[in-house]
């Protein structure tokens, strides 16, 4: 393996990793606040891709506008899921919330199968995404370059919201101590709602970019990226936003490099990620940047 190929794989890994990072942030934000895993997040990702697809193909809306509309629509879907399914079980035992999330995830996937069918749809990505760049022996598609750049811009916006705005402060406050925040007069349900909206918007952006990279979209397209992004969130330390970003890049690189260096193991590319997930849960469940939680007796 020469340096050029390695460099190419590095770019591919970063590109894939940035998508996982976008998705991982949604998992980590919801976990940070509600201490529960939103299984349906991977399906939100799919909803994002499909809504962009329909805005472009059916309504013939220009690409950038369609993407923006799709992100807003998906954010609304995320808020609705929280309002309809998760809020009623918020005070129930944790196991109930988890079962609900499993149910919602399966509901969205099958709703997709029923309404748009299992057959893949061809996603139209904009011209600048499909151009190929040649740098010496390395050839890189526009997608591989644009995805990390757009991701980076989105992350800057997200960090601004979380760390520099009032609603972001409320989000961080709720994740530190939900009861105390409630006592301070903050409408916790509203903050949680916005958290779902923000997480879902990022997932939608991730879904659209994913569809540019892999233009065959199906109702089950979110399942594996979802688990990998979740693994990324665990690796980075679930509950930590910077952790989710770091984790995303790590998982993207592991996946790409496994296939590049060990072509025989390509059948195991999903297995490797689950192995990383399990190993991290067992050895360091708090991840790289997470904090330890001690149960009070």
């Amino acid at each position: 393996m020469n340096a050029a190929v390695f460099f190419q794989q590095l770019i591919n890994g970063m590109s894939l990793g940035s998508l996982y990072a976008l998705l991982a942030i949604g998992y980590t934000m919801v976990y940070g606040i509600l201490r529960f895993i939103n299984f349906a997040h991977s399906d939100i990702f799919m909803v994002g891709a499909y809504s962009a697809f329909f805005f472009i193909v059916i309504f013939r809306i220009p690409w950038p506008l369609a993407a923006a509309l799709a992100v807003c629509f998906t954010a609304l879907v995320g808020m609705t899921i929280d309002r309809v399914a998760y809020r009623p079980v918020r005070d129930a035992p944790r196991i109930s919330a988890l079962i609900t999330a499993v149910g919602v995830s399966s509901f969205i996937e099958n709703l997709g199968l029923v309404t748009v069918g299992a057959r893949p749809k061809a996603f139209e990505s904009p011209k600048f995404m499909s151009r190929v760049f040649h740098i010496g022996p390395v050839s890189i598609t526009g997608v591989a370059i644009w995805v990390p750049i757009i991701t980076f811009m989105l992350l800057v916006v997200m960090m601004y919201i979380v760390y520099r705005t009032k609603i972001g402060m409320a989000m961080r406050s709720v994740s530190t101590d939900i009861e105390a925040t409630r006592l301070m007069g903050v409408d916790v349900d509203k903050v949680i709602s916005y958290t779902f909206a923000l997480g879902s918007a990022l997932a939608a952006a991730g879904g659209i970019l994913w569809a540019c990279k892999y233009p065959r979209i199906t109702p089950l397209m979110g399942v594996y990226p979802g688990w990998k992004a979740f693994t990324a969130a665990v690796v980075g330390g679930i509950g930590s936003i910077p952790g989710a970003m770091i984790g995303g890049f790590i998982i993207g690189l592991i996946e790409v490099m496994t296939v590049a260096f060990f072509p025989d193991l390509s059948g195991y590319r999903d297995g490797v990620i689950f192995l990383v997930l399990v190993v991290f849960l067992l050895i360091r469940p708090t991840g790289i940047l997470g904090e330890t939680l001690k149960e009070k007796v």
Partner: peptide, 18 residues
């Protein structure tokens, strides 16, 4: 309609939990 049964069952599961 493929997926219809699972759609019904998923909805059932969520309704049960709620």
């Amino acid at each position: 309609i493929a997926g219809m049964r699972m759609l019904v069952f998923s909805l059932l599961l969520v309704l049960l939990m709620v």
